[in-house]
């Protein structure tokens, strides 16, 4: 039983990070129907930026966290303006390929700047585990969970309540209609990239605090696909729920199946789920079924 709870906690933590990355992904997909393959690299760069500010610049962690978010915002805007803006109206395959090219380039750049070694954050959270009942939970897990919940709630409120959030949802719903209501669709595209970069950075920083940072963090960018298919490609609540589910699933299959089948099964389990979901419920749990009219 303790083992189960331990796995659940670990799963929820990873899952909440997945949820955040998926949130950024869904935002971009919803507003501009671009499938973003560079999400993992945004995560890596966010994590490295924060580490660089904290370790090499000696800025306190919370300060550098905030600065990283601002930088990520700029990065998102820059990427959209430089690379995605010229692609508006191009076939979807080209746009996908562009994000793949972007991911290769960003990965190369971060290797040039930060190398391939694993680097760790200085101890931001105490290494003394928190005891809840009979189980020990590392403090960083609790903080990660808390922080990602705060961000997820904040973004949910942003989409529900603020003018900008509503404009973003309107754009996602129908670009032409949004345009005719006076919403600048270009600005919304830029904003969705900025937000995607921000949430990816937060995810990256949390992961970095748990496991350290190296180039393999980018593989989290691919993990986002099972999450968004399970949750529905265009659903923000879906991304959050499915993120947690995939995190739990990965953790359980790592804990229970790995000894039986062999290592690495938890890496492919989400993709097996992806195939099953496509087979029985292709629009996911919360996705909107598309009805085409002529």
């Amino acid at each position: 039983m303790d083992f189960f709870i331990q796995l659940s906690v670990a799963g929820l933590v990873i899952g909440s990070v997945y949820a955040m990355i998926a949130l950024g992904f869904v935002l971009i997909y919803k507003s501009s129907s671009v499938i973003n393959f560079a999400q993992g690299e945004l995560l890596l760069i966010g994590a490295f930026l924060c580490l660089w500010l904290t370790v090499d610049m000696g800025i306190p962690f919370l300060m550098s966290f905030a600065i990283t978010l601002v930088l990520a915002l700029g990065l998102g805007f820059a990427i959209e303006r430089l690379f995605l803006r010229p692609m508006i109206g191009e076939p979807i395959l080209s746009v996908i390929m562009l994000t793949i090219g972007l991911s290769i380039m960003l990965r190369g750049i971060s290797i040039i700047i930060w190398g391939t070694d694993t680097r760790t954050f200085p101890e931001v959270f105490s290494s003394e585990p928190v005891k809840i009942g009979s189980i020990n939970i590392p403090e960083v897990y609790l903080w990660s969970l808390l922080l990602s919940m705060i961000f997820l709630v904040a973004f949910s409120l942003f989409f529900k309540k603020t003018r900008l959030g509503i404009a973003m949802r309107a754009t996602a719903d129908d670009q032409t209609a949004a345009l005719s209501m006076g919403i600048s669709v270009k600005r919304i595209f830029a904003l969705s990239w900025a937000i995607a970069a921000i949430v990816a950075s937060v995810g990256g920083i949390l992961l970095g605090n748990i496991n350290g940072i190296n180039i393999s963090l980018t593989q989290f960018g691919l993990k986002v696909f099972p999450v968004v298919i399970l949750g529905g490609l265009d659903s923000i609540p879906g991304a959050i729920v499915a993120g947690l589910m995939i995190g739990l699933l990965e953790s359980y299959s790592g804990g229970y199946l790995d000894p039986l089948i062999g290592s690495g099964i938890k890496e492919v389990m989400p993709f097996v789920i992806l195939m099953i979901v496509l087979m029985i419920k292709p629009y996911g749990l919360f996705g909107q079924e598309r009805i085409e009219r002529v």
Binding site: F83, P86, M87, E90, S94, M97, L98, I100, G101, L102, S103, I104, M105, L106, R107, G108, I109, I111, I112
Partner: peptide, 19 residues
């Protein structure tokens, strides 16, 4: 790493300027 950067950049430039 520079090779990766150039490779990615070439793909991007092709898509933008020679679609």
């Amino acid at each position: 790493a520079m090779k990766d950067v150039i490779f990615g950049l070439i793909i991007i430039l092709f898509l933008i300027y020679e679609p």
